[in-house]
Amino acid sequence: MSNLQPGAPAARELLDSVAKDDIRPSTSVVVTAGTRGTGEEPRRSFKRYFRETGWRHLVGVGVAIFALFPLLYVFSASLNPGGTLLTANGLFSNLDFSSYAALFQMPNQPYGAWFVNTLIIGLVTAAGTVLLGALAAYAFSRMRFTGRRFGLTTLLVVQMFPQMLAMVAIFLLMVAIGDIFPALGLNSRVGLIMVYLGGALGVNTYLMYGFFNTVPSSIDEAAKIDGAGHARIFFTIILRLVAPILAVVGLLSFIGTSSEFVLASVILIDPENQTLAVGLYRFISDEFSKNWSVFAAGAVLAAILPVALFLALQRYIVGGLTAGSVK
């Protein structure tokens, strides 16, 4: 504007008006931005909130109540000595821990031995299942050999038949083995562990196989270039990369074997060798003396260890169950 001639007032007025017009929009933008920066948003109506997210909260609350009510009911029954499951309708109407003390004082009912047996059988079976399943899955995933496809198909087809179909065959087999090797026959914890390992090997191998396929084979090739063999690759590299599925298989195996009843009741005869699932049934098997409160107390104590393991390994569960499903 300083370069304009004094004799040109019209041009000066025109430039002033253009400058004013250029400033006004920028000022309005600053004001608008300042208004938006306050973080205030229009409040959603209840109808819109319920349609978008509210119904999900209701479903979550309903599922939580459905899952927690049986646990609270059993815990309430364990605090009602001398009662039955029907008289435990009033939740926590009676608070008495004498049933928990009676667990370890009843004659011919060694709850402590049952708990130790369940712990030993569950942990050994879980460790064996993880090791054998991982070895088989690695072989199917990384090696190419005759009968590989047929073996995978067989593992899948065998799972279609329930284990109960082999109950008679397993019993006769255990009797025959017990005549030669008593440590592996009937009334043997080692024999029960062997039966569990054989029954769970197929499904766990197929589950691990899908997870092993998600590990790039280039890792194996790089290790082989450095001179590593299959054993070194498996134990030092692959097992660390597939830790989620190992934790999931071990957890599911422990929970399944610790709560299994039919096979354990057929193979384990001596009360000192029985598991919790079979031993607790003795409290309610008599028609005239059903100790439902003691039974509930034993069930509550038996659930502590699986719940603790589940909470400790929960970060592996989702990844371990879903990572192999895309292959």
Results as ranks from 00 to 15, higher is better:
residue 210 G to P: 02
residue 51 R to E: 12
residue 87 T to C: 06
residue 189 R to G: 11
residue 85 L to C: 10
residue 93 S to W: 07
residue 215 V to Y: 03
residue 242 V to C: 01
residue 317 I to K: 02
residue 272 E to N: 15
residue 59 V to T: 10
residue 307 V to L: 13
residue 113 A to G: 07
residue 119 L to C: 09
residue 317 I to H: 04
residue 41 E to W: 07
residue 146 T to Y: 09
residue 310 F to P: 02
residue 149 R to G: 11
residue 161 F to T: 10
residue 253 S to D: 04
residue 211 F to S: 00
residue 286 D to W: 08
residue 319 G to S: 12
residue 87 T to F: 03
residue 253 S to E: 05
residue 313 L to W: 05
residue 241 L to V: 06
residue 126 A to S: 14
residue 263 L to V: 14
residue 144 R to D: 06
residue 176 A to N: 12
residue 225 I to M: 11
residue 262 V to R: 06
residue 288 F to D: 12
residue 67 A to S: 12
residue 30 V to D: 13
residue 220 D to L: 13
residue 100 Y to H: 11
residue 154 T to W: 13
residue 202 G to T: 07
residue 36 R to F: 12
residue 66 F to A: 14
residue 127 A to M: 11
residue 39 G to P: 07
residue 153 T to R: 07
residue 127 A to V: 15
residue 46 F to N: 12
residue 179 D to N: 11
residue 244 P to Y: 01
residue 194 M to V: 15
residue 103 L to D: 01
residue 122 G to H: 03
residue 238 I to N: 00
residue 34 G to H: 03
residue 4 L to P: 00
residue 42 P to R: 13
residue 216 P to D: 10
residue 112 G to V: 11
residue 227 G to T: 08
residue 158 V to I: 14
residue 316 Y to M: 07
residue 39 G to V: 09
residue 129 T to F: 01
residue 103 L to G: 02
residue 85 L to R: 09
residue 280 L to G: 02
residue 66 F to C: 13
residue 214 T to K: 07
residue 44 R to H: 07
residue 16 D to Y: 14
residue 59 V to N: 11
residue 11 A to M: 10
residue 118 T to V: 12
residue 264 A to H: 03
residue 198 G to I: 09
residue 287 E to V: 13
residue 154 T to H: 10
residue 320 G to Q: 07
residue 127 A to T: 12
residue 88 A to Y: 06
residue 276 L to R: 01
residue 278 V to T: 13
residue 19 A to I: 15
residue 222 A to W: 04
residue 149 R to W: 05
residue 124 V to L: 14
residue 166 A to G: 15
residue 311 L to P: 00
residue 196 Y to A: 03
residue 209 Y to I: 02
residue 264 A to M: 09
residue 33 A to P: 01
residue 246 L to A: 04
residue 127 A to H: 11
residue 217 S to L: 06
residue 182 P to A: 05
residue 160 M to A: 14
residue 34 G to K: 03
residue 324 G to K: 00
residue 174 M to N: 04
residue 61 V to W: 15
residue 29 V to H: 13
residue 293 S to I: 05
residue 193 I to Y: 00
residue 74 V to E: 01
residue 259 S to V: 03
residue 28 S to W: 06
residue 107 P to D: 06
residue 113 A to T: 05
residue 147 G to E: 06
residue 21 D to K: 06
residue 234 F to C: 00
residue 299 A to R: 01
residue 146 T to W: 11
residue 288 F to N: 13
residue 312 A to W: 13
residue 281 Y to A: 15
residue 109 Q to N: 11
residue 302 A to W: 00
residue 198 G to P: 02
residue 268 L to Q: 01
residue 248 V to M: 01
residue 123 L to A: 12
residue 46 F to R: 08
residue 168 V to Y: 10
